[in-house]
Computed example of a mutant assay.
Amino acid sequence: MAPSITSKNVPTPDIGSASEATAAELRSSLYDRQIRLWGMEAQARMRNAHILVITIKALSNEVLKNLVLAGIGSLTEDLGAQFFISGESVGLNRAEAAAPALQRSNPRVAVNVDISDPRSKGAGFYSKFDIVISTELDLDCLLYINDTTRECNRPFYAAASYGMYGYIFADLIRHDFIIEREKSDVRTELKQETRTRSVTAVRERKDSGKTVEFVTKQEVYSPLRSVISSKVDSTWRPRRRRMVPNVLPGVKALWKFQQAHNHLTEAKREDFAEMARLIMEANSNFIGPFVENATSEMAPVAAVLGGILAQDVINVLGKREQPLQNFLVFDGDTAAAPILALHPEGEEDGAA
């Protein structure tokens, strides 16, 4: 089991006692451009946020890099193909080896290391963090962590890259965010917009002769345990069915394979046969390329997925913009990354 980052000289952060970022610190040249982009309040939330990233490989490297540079408060992390580790790190735990380089990239961010099994921890541990990000883990481990983060009401992300393919899953439980826009002639109503999203509040402000509207919306999420039972079927609208890439049933088949064999698929006959059976159960003809890519890491794919995931985390912390709802699938063959709202019952929302 991949470990998670508590440094021998830096304690695991305690959200309840964390000091608030000062206005002077936030206005420093390091964060000035970001404050102009998303505002002081959003930057303050990031500066006081504590993020747990489990498993450090190519994808999580990209996530960590973007979050550290954005100026989050602290990272506790767990370590492939990555730019935070040199040849001198051979023999060390990946998280411990990566920590110094991460710390140097932004000294204001506290980097912590935890090398124990994520399944050995309960709600008391996970409740210390504002967001939990799990990468490259098997389904059973993801389900345990997501169940626990739900127990302590903490947002959860899962993600993995398989060569040319990959996914990001988000369970933010219940998330409020604000859309800022110029007021139009059409009145914004408090109403249910989709199955998962509703408008809960509207306020206005005059700005340079224009009326700016701040619309508060809320998204409701399903846990991974429910999402894995969701299927592409005849109840889906035709447009949405056309946008579902073969990677989705491929990911689900790979999860089942890992549960049965406790390892990822390899490019050998018996694994091809098993994955063919599992993917055919999911009504897909997509087999060979996915199996061949399952154990590989590609820097460009990791960079794309890591950038998307880190940006969504930043949006969630800042409570700005529409968050990912709830399953993004990346297909490197077509350079497509549709977002599917997968839920356990009824017709789902359309792909984004």
Rank of each mutant, 00 (worst) to 15 (best):
E347D: 14
D147P: 01
R47G: 04
R108H: 14
M46A: 10
F214S: 08
S89N: 11
S74K: 09
A260D: 12
V202L: 04
G122T: 12
P245C: 13
R150Q: 10
R237S: 00
R108S: 15
Y162I: 03
E266D: 07
D333R: 04
I131A: 11
L142A: 10
P323F: 11
Q43K: 04
A97N: 02
L26T: 09
I179L: 06
T334A: 10
S116C: 00
E266K: 04
I308H: 04
A201D: 14
G163C: 06
R150L: 07
F177P: 00
A21D: 03
D349H: 01
A276T: 13
T76G: 01
P344H: 15
S28D: 09
D117S: 06
T194K: 07
R150K: 08
I228C: 03
N293W: 01
P107G: 12
T22E: 11
Q192V: 09
A303P: 00
S74M: 10
A110R: 12
I85R: 09
T216D: 06
E182S: 12
P155K: 08
D333G: 07
I131D: 02
A335C: 11
V301R: 02
Q82C: 07
Y221Q: 06
R277S: 14
A58Q: 07
A2C: 06
K121P: 03
Q192D: 15
R320D: 10
M275K: 05
I178C: 03
A21C: 13
V186C: 12
E292S: 11
Y157C: 00
H343E: 15
D147M: 00
V90A: 15
L92K: 07
T334L: 05
A99N: 02
A159D: 02
T295H: 10
V316Q: 01
V63S: 08
D333N: 08
E151G: 10
R181D: 07
A99P: 01
L75T: 12
L30H: 01
G346F: 03
F125I: 11
F169I: 01
H261E: 13
L264H: 02
V111C: 10
G39I: 07
L324R: 13
D14N: 14
A335W: 05
V53E: 10
A341G: 10
H263Y: 00
Q192F: 03
D114H: 03
R181F: 03
N285F: 01
A58M: 04
E77N: 01
A58K: 05
C141S: 15
A253C: 06
I145C: 02
L139S: 11
S208K: 15
F125V: 06
P3N: 06
V316W: 03
D333T: 09
L248P: 03
Q325H: 13
S208G: 10
I133E: 06
E345Q: 15
F214C: 05
Q34N: 14
L305F: 03
L30S: 11
E20I: 00
N153C: 14
E182A: 13
E136G: 07
L342V: 09
E266T: 09
D331G: 04
A159S: 12
P107E: 14
Y165D: 04
D312E: 07
S89C: 10
V220L: 12
L224K: 11
P3G: 09
L305Q: 01
T334G: 09
